[in-house]
Nucleic acid binder design. Structure first.
Lengths: 358, 358
DNA sequence: GGTTATAATGTAAGCGGTTACATGACGCCG
DNA sequence: CGGCGTCATGTAACCGCTTACATTATAACC
């Protein structure tokens, strides 16, 4: 009966540590030692145990390990709802590092069915995950009230005022500054902004960068040109419609605070018969894959890298109690033809505006 | 707080069932009943228990529940490496349904660091997940040898010959047939195919669909026009280079078996000064977001829906032991300008080639 | 009223590991 | 040769729940 004949009905019971212990003639503690690798076991005994385990096709029970050992080998990750497409890179980065370190990843998305607080509470349960990675969310405030004492939490791409949780972020301020400078160099002066939702960390940071750049360049900030969006493609299209319907003259350039909105806006502008960058220059943020296809000038956000760093921090925190140093990753301005000014554009040029640091 | 050696801070110990039991003056079993909801408890006692639990900020331990109750409320999902971007929709669908049903999702990606068999073995451990969702992979063969008796496994978008695991798939054959017919209608006769990796289920199915369509339309299949790719953007570009370097005349149309390859090919063709659809018509498969921006004719794969169905099946299997009926989801031909023929194209038209059914 | 079905709760034995502590074998030393 | 430190292994008490079974209170019936 060597081969895997189908056991009809009788659901084969999984062998336990004790089965292995019995078959190999050693105590259960020794078997545990062999499998956990946390204590020395003589080579001879180890071999006997492994043989028995193989014979029985034994696999340690994750649940029992988690309960007795207080380790789940699992990283929890919470993504915002608006993350479509965008989060995939972060997740890929997290998974990559987790896999290297022998961890699994529990990915959850805030959605209609579960709110962020619910999710956090759920994952905070003992024995669910060993650490929590939380992505940028609009309503970050509540997290600091969570009981987080027993579990490391790492914030990705946002900060919580008044909390000292480690944060891996990116240089949103520098990215936005660089973009404004670029648009300025292209000859654009009346620059409209399409921001993200109110209170969103990324959006606020980028807006700050814009203000700084405006100040330095001596451009007065026209509040009427600060449009509010929702980081979705549809909100970009809506903003375009609203603007056009208002009858105002188009600005020289529009800087959308993410690519999704820029794409929506681009589509809507073209539908209305306006050309980009002929009638108005356009720029986005994040440098998603589609930006390349649409020749959209953007800022490359290091999503994958953020995921990697966050996971690495989590693993170090769990295994060595090593406290991470908050860090802000570099971003890269990616110039394409959508932002060209009167003098013509230099498509494809790439510049790195920000140095990494604290 | 000297963070050197011993945890000097009073790391708050999580309250247990027994703490709640003591505080509320009922037995631990009753507290368990209140929280699991699996037995009747008088309204008065329930209230007392809930009050005590709230006072202590009690949250049940996931690990203990999993061990004692043999339920993890977790779905495992294994994605292939090539899935970039593409899997995100499937994951979203899975997560959506899982969330509705109170499940979490453990997402793992086959990568350099862990092979599929390793991953499966890992997730198959007792108490890790309650069911496994496995996506299309090139080397599906090994799965049927896994010891899967104690755990439901659902296959997404691929079948394993000789195994009776439930499969949620899509009508690849019909989709490919519809595409070939469309290209034929556009007047294209010399049609090249760029397939996926050898042995890949999707690729084989799509190829089958093409053969059928060719046969029905009376087009002889020219094996020299069947190119092999790897489902990556780069392999699409490479195929284009190879073809151009071969010096052969371009075919009327090229049908790439996924959008990623079509996008790579499109870029390479344009770089070489060939116009699409002017010099050669082009079509992809999957209808990824970028396809819309590139005006690429494609076939819309119901990725999100597949994820939803798979998760729904898993949940039903777990909670009600309801065996799912294998199912093949409809696909939709999405015509855009990249496939236009001599007569001109009807951009934007959408047709549904396949009826749903076994 | 006595008997019995029914509902609510308590008792305690697991679930399958980990790990503090005890034990015994061995080598080394004065 | 007795004492002692080391190392490999065994013993058994948890980890924090679930649940079969026992118990008691209450309702229902003849």
């Amino acid at each position: 009966m060597a081969d895997g004949t189908i056991t009809s009905g009788v659901s084969k019971v999984q062998p336990t540590l004790y089965d292995v212990s019995r078959l190999s003639g050693v105590s259960s503690a020794t078997v545990s030692r062999v499998f956990s690798g946390k204590a020395r076991v003589s080579e001879e005994v180890r071999k006997r145990v492994m043989d028995a385990a193989r014979q029985l096709a034994y696999e340690p029970s994750h649940a029992a390990r988690a309960l007795a050992g207080r380790r789940t080998q699992t990283l929890g990750a919470i993504f915002p709802e608006i993350a479509s497409g965008f989060y995939a890179d972060v997740l890929a980065g997290i998974d990559e590092v987790a896999a290297e370190s022998g961890f699994d990843v529990l990915a959850s998305f805030v959605g209609k069915r579960r709110s962020r607080p619910e999710l956090v509470k759920r994952l905070l349960r003992q024995g669910r995950v060993d650490a929590l990675l939380v992505l940028n969310l609009d309503d970050s405030q509540d997290l600091k009230h969570e009981s987080i004492d027993h579990l490391p939490i790492i914030l990705i791409d946002h900060e919580i005022p008044g909390s000292s949780l480690p944060v891996i972020g990116m240089d949103n301020v520098g990215g936005a500054e660089a973009m404004i400078e670029h648009l300025f160099e292209q000859g654009h002066r009346r620059i409209a902004l399409l921001t993200g939702p109110e209170g969103n960390f990324d959006s606020d940071q980028r807006l700050l960068g814009c203000r700084r750049a405006f100040a330095r360049l001596g451009i007065p900030l026209d509040e009427a040109l600060v449009l509010r969006g929702a980081f979705t493609q549809e909100s970009g299209a809506a903003a375009a419609r609203d603007y056009l319907e208002s009858g105002r003259a188009l600005p020289d350039a529009i800087f959308c605070f993410n690519d999704a909105m820029a794409i929506g806006m681009l589509a809507e502008l073209r539908r209305a018969g306006r050309s980009v960058p002929g009638d108005v220059a356009l720029a986005g943020y994040d440098n998603v894959e589609a930006a390349a296809h649409l020749s959209l000038t953007s800022v490359a956000s290091p999503m994958r890298l953020m995921g990697q760093v966050a996971a690495r921090w989590a693993v170090d925190l769990i295994t060595r109690n090593e406290r991470p140093v908050p860090h802000r990753l570099q971003v890269r301005l990616v110039v394409r033809s959508s932002s060209a000014g009167k003098h013509g554009s230099r498509g494809g040029a790439v510049r790195t505006p920000s140095a990494s640091g604290l």
